[in-house]
Design a protein around this nucleic acid. Structure first.
Lengths: 255, 255
DNA sequence: TTTACATTGTGTCAATAAGACACAGGATAT
DNA sequence: ATATCCTGTGTCTTATTGACACAATGTAAA
């Protein structure tokens, strides 16, 4: 594992597009909370967004797909580019130098890893339960963090996360957000919590249901949720065709 | 002029962040039409979006500001990043090689200008009449093109333009689009044409006026437009403070 | 000078959507 | 049995949207 990192850090200059990386904000939804997948860095006491480099002849988005796949084990994930971050001051060269030094690698000025990096930000929506968080070679842990309770992040990753969130909010009506974040079957209250978490505000239960059903993109199943200490809610699932069709025109406006 | 280009192409490897560029979609509005500023390339029979490279320690956005300034003569322009284009196939190395050759420059494989380029796309909204189009060193012309009647564009610039337009459409309610594209004083029909052009559809004259005035961001001036062969429309101007305030919450939804 | 024309300013009415709220139903916990 | 807590559904009011009619007013033509 360590060897792999050393290898990449040494040969990176030949392998990767110079000064370019991708960072992924991976959203999940669990326990009625929006979650983000983070990595605990080995050589610094900070958490960071999963990221990676772009091979010289690789699609940038494909690099993001690789990151997604290797951190969650999932393929075919909903993924969208949202912003590119390129401030010269965002690259923490000191931090990167420390990583090189900690691995007994030569940290000369021109080392590709110590240059300024531009990073393309992607956000992903994944099914929380299907994902299996796996740290990468430079991390000692990979875990979901509650959006309400984030640790300090490395470099400008906090800023990147905020931008991703804002984008998610704005795209709530254009993108199949619910479809990608929820399990196959879910209840109306669960869907509502998801919207409330993303929007950061409370919604009226009854009006929410009316509007959501109005889109005609949900199928109500015969089944009801079991094991709850009150009236059992119905289970719903997305009607994939109708959802896709409705998104063409945008899901009405206004949450 | 030619010398300047040669100089840049030779020293670019030391000056610029490798494999990175910016491209600007500069929108203007004139004669009730949405316009885009394009450059006619010298060494190819195609038009292209104004673009440039990013200095090693320069903010990416600042590179875009430089492009804006040098193509239009304008400073303090409304500018937004909208997408980053990074497909390996987007770089037209053949085209770039031809440019080098045409300038009698050595076109070896490793020349910085012949590498793959990632480009960050920005769109700008400018006051058509204030802008003074100026070609850059590699262009023989710089001119406004009607959006309805675009020439073939180089590389993936057509795709970039389409993305910019789509972004503009979606941001019509979040961004001060009218404020930046129209002159100080304008009529309601002019504002409506602008919205219609961006949205690509007709709007009802009376409902448009009601909704627009409803925002409370316009000041109606005493003046009326003169020299028109029919009833003279009022002139309006944006109330900067109220506009800024209204945009905080987003301008309602739904056009 | 009068009239035709094109386009603007303003208002109304109906249909639709959004916001606020009340009450009955049903599964577990005591 | 019954209390509790949340769910399912309906109604009433208000705000927004869409469709449309008519009077007003500058130039151009007669």
């Amino acid at each position: 594992m360590e060897e792999e990192v050393e290898n990449i850090l040494q040969k990176g200059g030949e392998l990767f597009h110079p000064g370019l990386s991708v960072d992924c904000v991976i959203f999940g939804f669990h326990d009625n909370q929006l979650k983000v997948l983070l990595l605990k860095m080995k050589h610094a006491d900070k958490w960071a967004l999963p990221g990676g480099f772009v091979y010289k002849e690789e699609e940038v988005e494909h690099a993001a797909v690789r990151v997604l796949q290797s951190r969650t084990g999932l393929g075919n994930i909903f993924l969208r580019q949202f912003h590119t971050f390129g401030s010269p001051s965002r690259s923490d060269r000191k931090l990167n130098r420390e990583l090189l030094v900690s691995l007994d690698l030569e940290a000369h000025e021109n080392h590709w890893f110590l240059q300024r990096f531009i990073t393309v930000g992607y956000y992903a929506l994944v099914n929380f339960s299907s994902a299996v968080p796996r740290p990468d070679a430079t991390s000692e842990a990979c875990a979901w963090w509650d959006l309400q309770d984030m640790p300090p992040l490395a470099m400008d990753h906090n800023h990147i996360l905020q931008q991703a969130l804002e984008t998610l909010r704005k795209q709530l009506n254009d993108q199949p957000v619910g479809y990608n974040l929820l399990p196959e079957k879910f209840t109306m209250p669960e869907l509502q919590r998801l919207y409330e978490t993303i929007l950061g505000k409370q919604l009226d239960r009854r009006n929410f249901q009316r509007k959501m059903l109005g889109y005609g993109i949900l199928d109500r199943l015969e089944e009801r949720k079991r094991g709850v200490a009150h009236k059992a809610p119905y289970l719903y699932s997305f009607n994939k065709e109708k959802y896709a069709a409705a998104l063409q025109d945008g899901l009405q406006q206004g949450w």
